[in-house]
Amino acid sequence: MLYRITVRNADGEKLEIVVEMSEDEVRALAEELRKAGYEVRVEPIPEGEEP
């Protein structure tokens, strides 16, 4: 499935990426980023919607 991941650092800089991963993989990635001090938001992209 496609997911949009938005990551912000302490300075407020934002990075937005689209990935194709399983829900478990995305959850693990988000958890690791949060542990590293980043603010993370994950949104699933519905099938048929443009990323």
Rank of each mutant, 00 (worst) to 15 (best):
M1P: 03
M1N: 14
M1Q: 11
L2F: 10
R4K: 14
R4D: 01
R4F: 08
R4A: 03
I5D: 00
I5M: 07
I5A: 00
I5V: 13
T6L: 05
T6H: 04
T6W: 10
T6Y: 14
V7Y: 15
R8D: 02
N9R: 14
N9A: 06
N9V: 06
D11Q: 14
D11L: 15
G12Q: 05
G12S: 04
G12F: 07
E13I: 15
E13F: 14
K14Y: 07
K14M: 09
K14L: 12
K14D: 06
K14Q: 11
L15C: 03
L15T: 12
E16V: 06
E16G: 03
I17F: 09
V18G: 01
V19T: 08
V19G: 11
V19Y: 05
V19M: 07
V19H: 02
M21F: 09
S22D: 06
S22R: 13
S22E: 05
E23T: 13
E25L: 06
E25T: 06
V26M: 12
V26Y: 01
V26E: 00
R27T: 10
R27G: 11
R27S: 12
A28T: 09
A28F: 11
A28K: 05
A28L: 12
A28V: 09
L29K: 14
A30P: 00
A30D: 02
A30V: 07
A30K: 04
E31M: 09
E31D: 06
E31C: 02
E31S: 06
E31W: 07
E32R: 15
E32T: 14
E32H: 03
E32G: 14
L33A: 02
R34H: 12
K35C: 01
A36M: 09
A36K: 14
G37L: 01
Y38Q: 05
Y38K: 12
Y38R: 04
Y38A: 13
E39G: 04
V40Q: 00
V40L: 02
V40I: 04
V42H: 04
V42A: 03
E43S: 07
E43Q: 12
E43I: 13
E43G: 03
E43H: 11
E43T: 12
P44C: 04
P44L: 12
P44W: 10
I45V: 06
P46V: 15
P46W: 14
P46Q: 10
E47T: 13
E47D: 15
E47Y: 08
E47V: 09
G48F: 13
G48S: 15
G48I: 13
E49W: 11
E49H: 09
E49D: 08
E50G: 09
E50W: 06
E50Y: 09
P51V: 06
P51H: 08
P51I: 10
